[in-house]
Write a protein that binds this DNA or RNA. Sequence first.
DNA 1: CTGCATGCAAAAACTTTGCACCGCC
DNA 2: GGCGGTGCAAAGTTTTTGCATGCAG
Lengths: 130, 130
Amino acid sequence: MLKHSRQRDSIKNFLMTRTDHPTAETIYENLRREYPKISLGTVYRNLSLLTEIGEIQTISTGVGPDRFDGNMEPHYHFICKQCGRVIDLEMQGIDHINLLAQHGFSGTIESHTVFFSGRCEKCLSESKIK
Amino acid sequence: MLKHSRQRDSIKNFLMTRTDHPTAETIYENLRREYPKISLGTVYRNLSLLTEIGEIQTISTGVGPDRFDGNMEPHYHFICKQCGRVIDLEMQGIDHINLLAQHGFSGTIESHTVFFSGRCEKCLSESKIK
DNA sequence: CTGCATGCAAAAACTTTGCACCGCC
DNA sequence: GGCGGTGCAAAGTTTTTGCATGCAG
């Protein structure tokens, strides 16, 4: 039922080469080099599909468009409140917070979404200069 | 410089009476009873402003429109992946995760955003019935 | 009065979708 | 061939904004 598609492969491959969590628009601009006729609609469709089947991750930062991540290893994200950059954090897992949340809650806690924020190294050093 | 406005007061007051994290649209529909001429633009403008000055919280769930919370006591949210409801959790603080994130990271971790998800009590009991 | 806030409407920003055609299985 | 995928364009959803007017200080 799920058919192979060069476009989808290409989107996935592109995401695997990047660690900067590009937006759909950025992915589209890049894929156009290989597939000049690809449409933004196709990019969005495949990003949704890939997210559904667990091959990539969609990151809704709450600021600007969604971002996408081809790295499915468990990891957390940092969002710079100055420049908006999304950076991978290397930190130990914090799944224990699910237990804390479950305590006294009558629904079921299945997962959590966490973003850290602050200033990234680059923005910090630039503000020193000024 | 920041002028008083009945509309803004009313938005804040409305949010304080609710614990269900309404959307801008819901706030708008309700405020129209008191201010039949209020515009959605004004609602959005004031929600942004109130968020900026720290009187309310904006919750971007990543699904559907943003939601707003008048409760500024530190607390966490649960989002039901079935019905989308946003529920306050009564759990201990988890600020220690900022330290875990900071370890080995060259920017500054100032804060975190956390949502828990799963099924709420209501959705669980409804699925039992079926 | 002066200038921020409002109402209204248009536009922007982001994402989804209908449809005819294309290409994988 | 049949059916899922694509390109294209239009539409949908959510939020922001320009502008003339209104109202608080």
